[in-house]
Write a protein that binds this DNA or RNA. Sequence first.
DNA 1: TAGTGCTAGTCTCTTTTTGAGACCAACAAT
DNA 2: ATTGTTGGTCTCAAAAAGAGACTAGCACTA
Lengths: 136, 136
Amino acid sequence: MALNASRKPMLDGKECDTSGWNMDNCPVRDVIDRIAGKWSTLLLGALARQPYRFGELRRLVPDISQRMLTQTLRDLQRDGYIEREVFPTKPPSVEYRMTDLGRSLFEPLSKVLQWAEANHPSVKAARVKYDESELA
Amino acid sequence: MALNASRKPMLDGKECDTSGWNMDNCPVRDVIDRIAGKWSTLLLGALARQPYRFGELRRLVPDISQRMLTQTLRDLQRDGYIEREVFPTKPPSVEYRMTDLGRSLFEPLSKVLQWAEANHPSVKAARVKYDESELA
DNA sequence: TAGTGCTAGTCTCTTTTTGAGACCAACAAT
DNA sequence: ATTGTTGGTCTCAAAAAGAGACTAGCACTA
């Protein structure tokens, strides 16, 4: 197959698809960069099921540091995906729960998660194949 | 609203949903952690449209360093989402194109991207609201 | 024929991000 | 009196990412 020499921009009518992504005026990056963090989807997945308290989330995701848990929760809250409520119990307890916006996001996001679970074997196979061809 | 005191695990039948996410035996994290990178979705979005060469991608995403472009492309290739083909032209040129697995992933992923574009105003509004309540 | 530019990277250095773990105050239970 | 629990913050070390110089071989130009 030859290298496509006549490479035109190919703006195929769909302006809202991936056609306007050249620079940083792109709103998609602004949103995606936040939910693309290492822990964001994980916490969103947990809170999509039910509300959790800080310590519960920490126990649920054992390999997250308190620092990143605090920070990620704050970022998710700032973007409006989760809510934070403080209860005046003896040691004050804090509950995190998903907002409507968060649930609306998690709908398409969960599809990606389901894809990941379903296609994990294919990805692992691709890695093995790549690594074998590399060490040659 | 009171703090939900009787907090049972609430394994509601759906085992494949977000119920098995407690530890690192989770295959979802293994897949998601790779496509959750800062540049992964961006490059996937570009290559979903058409194949591109290294320099073209660099020009398309001006604020990525060559280092991260190389590395991200390699990671995406290793997981089987994209292919790399070298053409023996005078200065050798390299073309990157999406695989069937990559296209299969991009189907649900593009839904999240569409969500991001559609709900960008809501997210920006949530940020403003949060920042205002913080500086108080 | 010397100079310049193009290709797709790599190498090194600096800056940013993340992780590990100590520390906090108040109150409950032992 | 000590220990544990709450939801964090703070500091320091390690890892990751960004910036920019550098490479080789060939084409084009002056």
